[in-house]
Amino acid sequence: MRITCPICGERSVAEFTYGGDATVERPALDASVEDWSAAVYDRENPRGAHVEYWQHGMGCRAWLKVERDTVTHKIGAVTLVGRHANEEAS
């Protein structure tokens, strides 16, 4: 697989580390134990389109949201997360 990092360009998947399901919304620190349990343990495990966190650990170290098809492994849109999420990569 190859992932196009918005900062570094198209790279081998070997440079990236999987970081979990990006559709899970992380609760606030003071959220209830039920909310936290759901966020930590409950997963949809979809067949097909999915959004995941990946870190470009052997490149710019940016955390990315990567659209991936769990059947074909086709990579879709890749975006930065966090405060740079809406910035254009230059």
Binding site: R26, Y53, Q55, G57, A62, V81, G82, R83, A85
Partner: peptide, 14 residues
């Protein structure tokens, strides 16, 4: 390191 970077990127971008 990876976990702290994840937190800053996803949970606490502010």
């Amino acid at each position: 390191m990876q976990f702290l970077e994840f937190l800053l990127a996803t949970a606490w971008p502010d």
